[in-house]
Every structure is written in C-alpha cells, then in structure tokens.
Design a protein around this nucleic acid. Structure first.
Lengths: 109, 109
DNA sequence: ATTATTTATCGTAATATTGCGATATGGGCA
DNA sequence: TGCCCATATCGCAATATTACGATAAATAAT
C-alpha cells in the first residue's frame, strides 16, 4: 500500500497525472514562471529569486527535468534551464482535451 | 520540514498548485472523466467502474470536493457528484494564464 | 423493528514528498 | 597544481499521500 495503483488506469490518465504532479507545487510553478519571464533561460539565479535552499531548488529542477518539462544545458560552470517546447505543447493539448470535455452543468445537482 | 513552504509564494501560485494537486492523480482524473462523460452525474457507480475499494474512492471524492472542483448532493441513500462549474472555469483560466505565458523557444539552449 | 444498501469516517501500514545541511563533482582561473 | 564557483547528490527528519479493512451513519425496503 501507499503506492498509486497505476496498472488500473490508462496510459493517458497516468501520463497526464504525472505531468500535472510535476507542476502541482508552488515552487515549481514559480520556477517555471521565472524561466518563462526571463525569456532567455536562467540558471541558479533561481536560488536568489526564490527563498529556498540551493539543494531544494536543484531537486525541484530535477523533477521538472524528469517529467521532460524543462531541459538543461551546461554553460561552463553554470547550467541553463529552459522549457522543452514539445513537452509544453503536449501538456497544453492533454489538458485541453481533458478540461474542454466538460460542456457546462447538466440538469442535475 | 516535510511541509511545503507556502508563505514564500504568491496567493495565485499556491492556489494553482492546490488545484493541480487535486487533479494530479490518475484515479481522480478517471473520476472526473466519468462524471463528465455520464452527462448526468453519477454516484457510487465509480466504485464499480474503477478498480479501487469503496473507501479509496470516497477519499478521492472528498479531496476533489475539498478543492471545490466537484459538488455532491444527497439523493436518498446515494450521493450524486458533479462538476462545480465555476471552479472548473476558474481552473481553465488559471491554467491558460500560466501555460500561454510561454511563447515558444528562446534563442538559447 | 429489522435488515440491506450506500456512503463516510477511522485507523493503520506502506510509500512518497519536501526541505535542508553536508558533501561530492566538475568546470574555470590564479 | 590548487583554489573558488555553481550544481548535483546523499542522507536524514518531518510530514503528506495512497490504499484499504473495519466500522459507523443514514435512508430504503421488507
């Protein structure tokens, strides 16, 4: 117990859930917003911007990278993170499919 | 430790994260899809449809209700759950604002 | 009144997440 | 080479999540 029973759900359901979980944290939302707003991609400036320890930021970046949402390229000593365009677009599509499935209130409730 | 440091993030970031967390589980995605596709709202048929124990389904429904995403009305012995239209719309708006902020790849990475 | 049905809640075990200090790693530079 | 710098990783403690059996609560049917 304690583990999500992913065997009983569809590939699509599991995939959407994983992507959403990667994003469903205020620190990771903040990180993504920073990466987006600094239209050039930023690196460990995140540690200064957000009020979290370096180890914590690094861990959040790792999770976003594992989910495929961002990518990092080494630039000398620093690492430059930016959005992975295809994953972002795919997430947008999956979410649209899911959210737009609801066509307003039914005649109950 | 172990707790998310929500004090250091904006109200918007925390709110979006909470809504996403409520949705970021394959069982809850499946539940929402069922509620949507059965355009009349269904009740404990979810227990038959999904392969999870009744207690588990009830718990997931509670989380969705706590997040304000669904609402339940008692119908005799059964309970009828359906989407809360305003919360759904708000989530769509918050997500659009967030996701549409990204305007394609920059000239780095 | 008793019984069956549906849903909620409690308690618990297994596992996952969050955050951070300490420490490693892997470049740049004197 | 030896020393800084930026990141990554390890290990840990606190807390949260997931799943479920057992049980409660509330109505319906007999």
């Amino acid at each position: 117990m304690g583990t999500t029973k992913k065997e009983i759900f569809s590939k699509e359901q599991n995939e959407l859930a994983l992507q959403l979980k990667a994003i469903a944290h205020p620190a990771r939302i903040a990180i993504l917003q920073q990466i987006i707003s600094a239209n050039a991609c930023i690196c460990g400036d995140l540690v200064d911007e957000l009020g979290l320890a370096q180890a914590t930021i690094s861990q959040h970046l790792k999770e976003l990278k594992n989910a495929g949402i961002i990518q990092g390229t080494i630039e000398g000593v620093k690492v430059c993170y930016c959005i992975e365009p295809r994953a972002w677009k795919k997430l947008q599509n999956m979410l649209s499919n899911f959210l737009d499935g609801y066509k307003g209130p039914a005649n109950c409730c």
